[in-house]
């Protein structure tokens, strides 16, 4: 089931993290991802962990939901850790598994890398958990705005993203409908040899594409009828506003980064 994975899921809420300007969140995460590689002492890791876990708690989303949602990621983290145990040969031999030596350095490095990895995933998931896709789109459009000067199609990109977001549920419903219709005509999507199962996708994909193209055509016509002529001269209903809360968040983050550098070895 897909609802196990929370990456990309949005959980509506009203915590202060939810209410932050999406640009603030994106900026903080961008720098967090950058600065996490500067951590090298126990204390510096501690500070970053405190920040990440603190933020996660501040979203007021159930902790069990977040932990469960990261299930697939746990395996990756565990895998990273084990890989380090086997490969790294720093420090003293701590103990042996059968005859294979495990070094202290391997444990330390494995833990550090895994922790880094975990914090990265956690913090980026917090962005999508607390920010609706359309807010993220708005923020990206806004942050990329300077690129307009070099003729980068910022508005078109943002419109494309928001229309995709709008049509994902519609196309999912459509997929289900068509696959049920074809199953009724004797198509077997679930059993049989791989080759046959791949062939079974054709009667699903062809109608889906045809309908998507038809939708696109009709949508384009509807947009034109509603006066759409590109990004020039458009006003916007959605408004991004940086408030005091955002300044507080940014200040906190800067303090954390300063603390990180102070506690570095």
């Amino acid at each position: 089931m897909n609802n196990m994975l929370i990456i990309g899921q949005y959980v509506p809420g009203s915590s202060f993290i939810h209410r932050l300007d999406p640009r603030t969140k994106i900026t903080i995460i961008f720098f967090f991802v950058f600065f996490i590689f500067f951590a090298n002492s126990l204390l510096s890791y501690g500070i970053l962990t405190l920040f990440s876990v603190g933020s996660a708690l501040a979203t007021r989303i159930k902790v069990s939901y977040i932990i469960k949602g990261l299930t697939p990621v746990w395996f990756l983290i565990l895998f990273t850790f084990l890989l380090h145990l086997l490969v790294t040969k720093d420090g003293e031999v701590l103990f042996r598994v059968f005859t294979y030596p495990i070094y202290t350095g391997a444990i330390i490095q494995g833990t550090a890398i895994s922790l880094r990895f975990f914090l990265l995933i956690l913090v980026t998931s917090l962005l999508t958990l607390t920010t609706s896709p359309i807010e993220i789109t708005d923020a990206i459009e806004n942050l990329l705005h300077p690129l307009k000067k070099i003729k980068f199609p910022v508005h078109e990109l943002a419109l494309m993203m928001s229309i995709s977001l709008r049509f994902i549920p519609t196309l999912l419903q459509e997929t289900e409908k068509i696959s049920k219709a074809q199953a009724s005509r004797g198509v077997d999507f679930k059993t049989g040899p791989i080759k046959e199962r791949i062939q079974a996708v054709v009667p699903l994909l062809v109608p889906l594409f045809i309908s998507a193209f038809k939708r696109a055509e009709e949508l384009a016509m509807a947009m034109e009828a509603r006066g759409y002529q590109g990004g020039e001269g458009r006003t916007k209903l959605r408004e991004l506003k940086v408030g005091p809360l955002d300044w507080v968040a940014l200040l906190c983050f800067i303090l954390i980064i300063v603390a990180l550098f102070v506690t570095r070895k």
């Binding site: 409908k177 068509i178 049920k180 219709a181 009724s184 004797g186 054709v202 062809v206």
Partner: peptide, 16 residues
């Protein structure tokens, strides 16, 4: 399924 024929809504959407 071979004994039950279902004509779904807008069945022309299943042509391929």
């Amino acid at each position: 399924r071979s004994k039950v024929g279902i004509v779904f809504q807008y069945p022309e959407h299943q042509l391929f």
